[in-house]
Design a binder for these strands. Structure first.
Lengths: 249, 249
DNA sequence: ATCTACTGTGTAGAACGTACAGTATTAGTG
DNA sequence: CACTAATACTGTACGTTCTACACAGTAGAT
């Protein structure tokens, strides 16, 4: 039996039982809740140990009774920020996965600081694993095997992440280079146009000339999102179809 | 004409012309090269202004003549770390995009610190844009329109990123929770098994019982990678097929 | 009642990013 | 050529941030 790292235990609700010293005045949940509120208000940069400690009314060092380091706190936040996944409501696996992926992406847009966390994926906590479970369950209707289901969910997660990163950076202007006042796709296109050498970037310049990055008629962010997602799901359906005919042979 | 932020100008090779003061002893390229060497050796955490300055033989504050802040340096590194994209070599769009995406993923595995950079995507520099250009060019053979091509590339990028994140965290054990000695998929599975409530996570526990996360016969990391990628590309082909018949109608 | 494990505090230190003032260096100007 | 002014880099200093460590108070165990 593997030793559970203490934070992991607490993240899964296993706060230690009655022990010797004074009764703890905090628990991991209230600490992460405070940290998340700060991140929601001021972004990841606003989250400091002292800040979180102040918000829960405690000295900074007290947090280290619940968390081994700031990095650990960030990891726990990455799980704590996740709401329950959408309900199935009798939808087909495909309809459900569309809703699931969109909810995933919307979460990332509502809490953009999740995007700047270093590497979200595998050390999943209870909430993130619940999402994984629901998606796997939806794929239970399909003839895919376990590994394939897992890979499908991985691809969907990645798509949500990329799409969220892109639309967030495009709309509200990220950090770094955008400090010069470049915000929004149009400005970005202008800067690019100024600097792109048509010889070295033929396909790109052609596209820019055609006006890709300016808003076109009837274009919506959501249409873009659906497009890539349907790409993936069409691939899944194609696989299922192949699987079905192969099984008959 | 939009004012180019100074770092952007330098990133695109536009070092300022002869000016009044002493001749510069550095340029942005050598600074970023030094920073990248440090990151390759010690990870992102090892990159500090003083460290980079020491490596190029200069006082820390000198760097601020070339870079507005550490964040800017990181942004420039994100582009500088990118090699030239694969050559087309007469391959079909699909074969090329497979190679392209794999090269993309391999890069992320070779320089894992890229994975922990906050938000890679849109402030692309010359090298990353070159990748984008090559992928768009490959899709030039297809009847997709500009926006669709762009979305396809986006999805592929996202897939490379997710796959790299996953395999990196699984194999070499990331930071955070894994400090307790959890490395590799098998260990991860054990920890999960210990903590998962079958009631709340039915699909997941079923899968674990079936032994997903243990190595199975004939399984390779690359097979997983190809699987998800083919999913996406099958979707693209389905779209192209639909497009072709619609065009005839 | 005493022991002892435990919780939260206070202080202190190391590392880091960067603002600011100063010094040396060079191109332009008369 | 002498002078001016813009520039590159240095040195110092300050504010933050994370965290190690020693301590005081608390409450279950014996």
């Amino acid at each position: 039996m593997t030793e559970l790292p203490p934070v992991v235990a607490r993240m899964w609700g296993r706060e230690p039982g009655t022990r010797r010293g004074p009764r703890p005045r905090l628990d991991l949940a209230t600490i992460t809740a405070a940290a998340i509120e700060i991140a929601d208000a001021d972004g990841l940069a606003g989250v400091s140990m002292s800040g979180v400690a102040a918000r829960v009314g405690v000295a900074p060092m007290a947090l280290y009774r619940y968390v081994g380091s700031k990095d650990e706190l960030l990891t726990v936040m990455a799980d704590g920020a996740v709401p329950p996944p959408p309900e199935r409501d009798g939808r087909s696996w495909r309809d459900y996965l569309v809703a699931w992926t969109r909810a995933n992406r919307d979460l990332l847009l509502r809490r953009p600081w999740l995007l700047s966390l270093p590497g979200l994926d595998p050390p999943m906590g209870p909430r993130r694993l619940r999402w994984l479970d629901r998606a796997l369950d939806a794929l239970g209707d399909t003839p895919l095997d376990d590994g394939e289901r897992f890979n499908v969910v991985t691809a969907l997660t990645g798509y949500a992440l990329t799409d969220a990163t892109l639309t967030h950076r495009m709309s509200s202007g990220g950090r770094g280079l955008d400090d010069a006042g470049i915000t929004g796709a149009a400005d970005y296109g202008e800067v690019l146009a100024e600097v792109l050498d048509p010889q070295a970037y033929p396909a790109l310049t052609a596209m820019m000339r055609a006006g890709l990055l300016r808003e076109s008629e009837g274009w919506t962010e959501d249409a873009d999102f659906r497009f890539g997602l349907d790409l993936l799901l069409d691939g899944v359906e194609a696989l299922i179809a192949r699987r079905a005919t192969n099984a008959g042979a």
